[in-house]
Amino acid sequence: MSHAHHHEHDPHHQATSALTGRTLTRNAVSATLHCLTGCAIGEVLGLVIGTALGWSNVATVALAVTLAFFFGYALTIRPVLSSGVSFGQALRIAFAADTLSITVMEIVDNAFILAIPGAMEAGLASALFWATLAAALAIAFVFTVPVNRWLIGRGRGHAVVHQYH
Rank of each mutant, 00 (worst) to 15 (best):
P117L: 13
S126R: 09
V85Q: 02
N110D: 03
A97I: 05
A96G: 06
N110P: 03
A111C: 08
E106F: 04
A122S: 13
A96Y: 08
I102E: 02
A97L: 09
V108S: 07
A90N: 01
G72C: 05
I102K: 03
I77F: 14
V65G: 06
T66G: 15
T76N: 11
L114P: 06
L100Q: 03
V80T: 13
L67I: 10
A64K: 00
I107Q: 03
A68K: 01
G72T: 05
M120L: 15
P117A: 14
A131T: 14
E121G: 08
F112I: 05
L67H: 08
S86F: 02
T66S: 15
A111H: 02
I113P: 02
A90C: 08
L100P: 00
A127P: 01
A119P: 03
P79S: 10
A97W: 12
R92E: 11
A119H: 13
I116M: 11
I107M: 06
P117M: 12
L124S: 08
R92M: 04
A125Q: 13
F70M: 14
F87Q: 04
A127V: 13
I113S: 06
I116K: 11
A74W: 04
Q89K: 09
A64Q: 02
A90G: 11
F70H: 02
S82A: 14
I113A: 10
V65R: 02
A122T: 00
I102G: 08
I113H: 03
D109F: 09
V108G: 08
Q89F: 09
T103F: 15
A96Q: 11
R78D: 13
R78P: 00
F95V: 07
L91T: 03
